[in-house]
Amino acid sequence: METIWLYQFRLIVIGDSTVGKSCLIRRFTEGRFAQVSDPTVGVDFFSRLVEIEPGKRIKLQIWDTAGQERFRSITRAYYRNSVGGLLLFDITNRRSFQNVHNWLEEAQSHVQPHSIVFLLVGHKCDLEAQRQVTQQEAEKLAGAFGMRYVETSARDAINVEKAFVDLTRDIFELVRNGDIKIQDGWEGVKSGFVPNTVHSSEEVTKGSRQCFC
């Protein structure tokens, strides 16, 4: 049966084609690394529960989008209903890094009046020898756009958990502080059923009350 979760966050994963979006998500949701995977056409779906604090579970609904530029007109429709996003580039592919600001602009212009909490992810960090983007410049870029930066590897399972959990925590803080509000007709954040016995802390009851009004 459905495990009880406090909130459901919809996350979108974007970035150039073949930077490893699907592999990263698969590693996070299925715990394995597929040597070969199909190119994503349109959008794929994944979900996982994350416990950010003991007893506080967040259900992540992850939208994995096609990376090819041609598909952007399709995928941009999915930004609006996302509360957070992972923006991936491949540290061994400089162009994918250069396209980061295109992706950001694209996203920002299509989510108005909402905004998406983005996390910049430098992927394939196991391929250190082929690195074309330094950690410093990536951190600088992330800082300029007010994002966190993390380097991950789906192959070696490096920072995969951290990337998703950190982003989830950030969003959770914003929701708890009321910076992000649950709204009708917006799928970004949804409140789950919260039994009093398990979660009795103040902010939790506040959160659950929010969804009924």
Binding site: T3, G31, R32, V160, E161, K162
Partner: peptide, 20 residues
Amino acid sequence: MANTTHGTESRRDSHCGVYG
């Protein structure tokens, strides 16, 4: 379906190799 592992990152990641 949804993975309910809430362990620390390292625990989870190290788990993956011998999954199932």
